[in-house]
Amino acid sequence: MSEGEMILTVEDLRKFFELRKGLFSKPVYVKAVDGVTFTLKKGESISLVGESGSGKTTLGKTILRLYEPTKGKIIFKDKDVTHLSSESLMWYRRETSLIQQDPYGALPSFLPIRRIIEEPLIIHKIGDKSERLKRVYDALSAVRLTPVEDFASKYPHMLSGGQLQRVAIARALVLEPELVIADEPVSMLDASVRIETLTLLRNLQETRKISFIYITHDLATTKYFSERLFIMYAGKILESGNIRDVIMKPLHPYTQALIKAIPDPDPENRKVLRDVPPGEPPNLIHPPSGCRFHPRCPYVMDICRVEEPPIVEREKEGFVACWLHAKH
């Protein structure tokens, strides 16, 4: 597989959760992911930014087939994995990996670190015992948990949050996956270790040429981690593009609001009010018609309420889904 080749293609992916209110009532659907399309190149790292309830986590887990997709296609290394049966899925499980938000919950508390990292190797029947142990030690030293023998024999409750998250990273990378999805990997860590963990992840991603999807609500950290940005809102991607481009020149009113809402440490902040739209993200059972942001949008037009916005290419790369930028 050569550089620049696609590793993952997601086409019009949808994931609806069925919600039954009563035994005899008609089921309703939570449209958590509602038509997402994007591609990921081999060795590329992208950021998926959205607020809670935007569907970003569901999107990540649906791509990893932890949820059954409702509609659409997931193509990984030219193979359609959308509806792979559980036996053929083992291959996909080996090639992909997940890093979760909560380091305290992500590891089984009753197993030693060595065994926790060894588990994926055992499941995929890789190597014999000594070979596996070597790979466990390699993984631990890759996440800089040294001396590795010490850490290997410890139990999760003996480690700090930052160290636990590095164990989780070691476990996620021990199978040498091609695609890693990290869902808020540092948001539960303390500020002082957040950057350390993120830097570590970035270095591993670059040296091992891993294709990476970084899911976060924290726009400020994305540019330290990836090149391309996708902004998600109410189950859809509203804007994408080069991170610096999008932050400097956001085109979608939602992206603009998001950027305005985020403070940088500055003593002037306290003297001014932030110009952000009121309201909160819509409920996903009955999302707004037309553009999903229209009820909160300061520039709303009649058409926004009725018709879904068109996908408009940005100047350099990426797109924006907004009627304001529609070419007439």
Binding site: S97, G105, A106, L107, R171
Partner: peptide, 26 residues
């Protein structure tokens, strides 16, 4: 619903393994 169960599914643990090795000890 714990994350470590989800993680186990993500790296390919079978249901049997999840029940016996991940849930019962907990």
């Amino acid at each position: 619903e714990y994350p470590y169960i989800e993680a186990a599914r993500a790296y390919g643990a079978s249901s049997k393994r999840i029940v016996l090795l991940y849930i019962i000890p907990k």
